[in-house]
Amino acid sequence: MTEEQQELRVEHYEMLYILSANYTAEEIKPIIEKIASLIKEQHGEITKDEDAGKLKFAYPIKQQNHGYYRLFEFNLVKNNLQNLNKILGLTNEILRFIIVKKKIKTETELKKEKDLQDKLAKKKEKEIEKIKADKKEIKEKVPKERGREKISLEDLDKKLDEILDTNKL
């Protein structure tokens, strides 16, 4: 692959961004549209728009404790990412954002993962059964030993009697 081709390669990205909680739920909508249009301006193709809800920050950002977390997924030419980063950094409405490369899973990969999960689930079931079986064995063992003891006690009595009898003689 030549350098030019590499720069024109389309990648799949995931972007998480925070909007200030000073906006109401309705005031947010035009802002979201604005951000989406910014991505589209860079010839990005949005595949997912998700609301992660209003959450509390782990530490205050610009003297605020809450924010709306939202998520975009989009395909973008690698070369345009730097531009997009710059533009998003200059939009005041966004408190903070992060763009992360996300791998699109192919069908074979998905199948592999599913197989792995099935395998693990079976393994766990087996282990649980094993533990149960072990517990049962212990339970079964205990009464047997007690039974033996009882028998042996009776035997002891008989033996004692015999011994006593022989002593009398």
Partner: peptide, 12 residues
């Protein structure tokens, strides 16, 4: 580290 930047986890 990413979670810290996005205020999902605290730094301190």
């Amino acid at each position: 580290k990413r979670a810290r930047y996005m205020a999902i986890l605290p730094y301190l």
